[in-house]
């Protein structure tokens, strides 16, 4: 129920406002979409066309942007010659692996935290949430050194572990909120009915399943989009799409077409996922503080 549902009287002022809002929205749409559009179009332009600009101030020649013959050679190049199939797979493995570990371990822990009272609980929370907020760069320093010593650099396992540093506390935190919303009485009823504690837990799983599903996807989103961990710890064998894309930027003769194509490949799946979990985005991105 929005505040706009309240009765609105049309005054001259409100007409001006309506016109203004239309202009503002149009503007903001342009502002939001333009970089994405340029990226996509550029991924289909060959090198010469990509660098074509009208002369300064010649607004009438903006159409130059659309003047090109589309080519898919950059995409082809990426997958066939530059190994992007591997990178794509690496992204899936690292993001998926970290999401699964985080959600499985995290949901068990979150459930216990939700149902069990003990001293020091809020201190535990604080520790958990601070691990989620730590600057990636700061965590990177020790992790790099430690993983190097354990030969985990450049391995899938190492990268999955690194991603888990922020996905696991995230999972615990958010999922605990979910379990808090399921009344304990349902599990109690189940136990009185004759189930064991674990069976009672299974009885409420259908109630939290959609939320858990959404957060698996959110974990994947965060891990997929990560650059620092992936480039420093995942370099070599476990390289994912973001660092791979960045590496396409060579000092001379930058292949912008391929870079834009790589950008599209990295971004498109995440946009689709974002559409899927639209409902849970606010909760996920605000660590549960805001519930839609």
């Amino acid at each position: 129920m929005s505040s706009r549902d309240a009765v609105v009287y049309k005054t001259p002022l409100s007409r001006i406002w309506t016109i203004f809002t239309v202009i503002f929205i149009a503007f903001y749409l342009l502002w939001t979409l333009l970089p994405l559009v340029i990226m996509t179009f550029s991924s289909f332009k060959d090198l010469l066309a990509a660098f074509q600009l009208p002369p300064v101030g010649a607004f009438s020649e903006i159409g130059l942007f659309f003047n090109f013959t589309p080519t898919t050679k950059h995409y082809y190049n990426l997958f066939v010659n530059l190994g992007f199939t591997t990178y794509f797979l690496n992204s899936i493995i690292a993001a998926g692996g970290s999401a699964i570990i985080s959600v499985v371990l995290g949901s068990m822990c979150a459930y216990a935290l939700s149902r069990y009272e003990f001293r020091g609980k809020s201190d535990l929370f604080f520790w958990i949430i601070s691990t989620r907020m730590a600057p990636v760069v700061a965590v990177l320093v020790p992790l790099y050194a430690i993983f190097r010593g354990m030969d985990l650099i450049g391995t899938q396992a190492g990268l999955i572990l690194a991603f888990t540093t922020f996905n696991l506390p995230f999972a615990i935190w958010i999922l605990k909120g979910f379990f808090d919303n399921v009344p304990y009485a349902i599990e109690e009823a189940s136990m009185v009915d004759g189930s064991t504690r674990f069976q009672a837990f299974r009885a409420i799983l259908p109630l939290v399943a959609p939320g858990i599903g959404a957060f698996v996807i959110l974990c994947i989103l965060f891990a997929w989009n990560d650059f620092l961990f992936a480039s420093i710890i995942g370099s070599g064998g476990a390289k994912t799409l973001p660092p791979a894309t960045v590496e396409l930027v060579q000092p001379q003769n930058i292949q912008w077409g391929s870079i834009m194509a790589a950008g599209v490949i990295t971004t498109l799946p995440m946009m689709l996922l974002g559409l899927l979990i639209r409902r849970y985005l606010v909760t996920g991105l605000t660590m549960g503080a805001v519930r839609e």
Partner: peptide, 19 residues
């Protein structure tokens, strides 16, 4: 639609805007 920029990896966003 407005949410789409948030879905983009910041590193990629950096590259696109560099461009």
């Amino acid at each position: 639609i407005f949410l789409m920029p948030m879905m983009m990896a910041p590193a990629i966003a950096g590259l696109v805007w560099y461009y």
